[in-house]
């Protein structure tokens, strides 16, 4: 379970360009559920997601992960939690060009020092599950948009995280690929993973597998959807 208590995030604090992205957000995200953070551009979805996923710190407030306060942890510990607990699927595939799909997929596991053979087997299995095992040796720039998205999903799963974070995952996918993506999410849910998605795509937040939709506007959670 993830708890956010009175979380605030201000960018460029003290400058004329100061911008409050989140205002006193209180939220509880339950385990083994699919939660969608919905809202227009600039509503604070991505900021909230990055705080939940230990990628950035709130300016004020507290975040608890499984009952443990993580806001004040040093960067090293946060990284460790992020690495072991979260898998990230970005709006863009964010794959590193010039290296193979397999190498990209294995990247998050490098700092853990897992045995190479074992890691490779795991990565190949993940690629096979998403039907891109035949692209393992290809360079990422040769992949189609859908293939790149799937490669980034395999990468998100390489450390077997308990929580999957997806930021606008269907923003650059066509309808067919978006449905394919939601099927993958359903599979995660079936495996007992917690999924948190930011999206303003009806295909995502109106999906039957979504357990909860949280509406955001101007950095606040709306009680009733607009």
């Amino acid at each position: 379970m993830i708890e956010l208590m009175n979380v605030k995030k201000v960018f460029n604090a003290g400058n004329p360009s100061e911008f409050p992205a989140l205002n006193s957000v209180n939220l509880t995200i339950e385990e083994n559920r699919v939660t969608v953070l919905k809202g227009p551009s600039g509503s604070g979805k991505t900021t909230l997601l990055s705080i939940v996923a230990c990628m950035s710190r709130p300016s004020a407030g507290r975040v608890k992960l499984k009952g443990r306060e993580i806001t004040s942890l040093p960067e090293r510990f946060l990284t460790d939690i992020r690495r072991k607990t979260f898998g990230f699927i970005f709006q863009q595939p964010n794959l590193i060009k010039g290296i193979s799909v397999l190498d990209n997929v294995m990247l998050p596991a490098y700092p853990l020092g897992e045995q190479r053979l074992h890691l490779k087997v795991k990565a190949m299995k993940g690629l096979a599950e998403l039907n891109i095992a035949n692209k393992a040796a290809s360079k990422v720039e040769w992949l189609s948009g859908g293939e790149a998205q799937r490669a980034s999903i395999v990468r998100a799963l390489i450390n077997d995280p308990h929580i999957i974070i997806a930021d606008e995952p269907t923003a650059h996918l066509d309808t067919k690929l978006s449905y394919r993506f939601m099927e993958i999410i359903e599979k995660f849910k079936a495996e007992g993973k917690t999924v948190i998605i930011t999206s303003h795509d009806p295909l995502v937040f109106e999906s039957s597998m979504v357990d909860r939709v949280v509406n955001l506007r101007d950095g606040r959670i709306e009680d009733k959807p607009a």
Binding site: M55, E75, R76, T79, R82, R83, F88, F90, N94, L95, I96, L107, P108, Y110, P111, R155, N159
Partner: peptide, 15 residues
């Protein structure tokens, strides 16, 4: 960008 990706996927600053 590459550094950002590495950090996002779980690399430490020291790595």
């Amino acid at each position: 960008r590459e550094i950002g990706i590495l950090k996002a996927v779980g690399w430490e600053t020291s790595d």
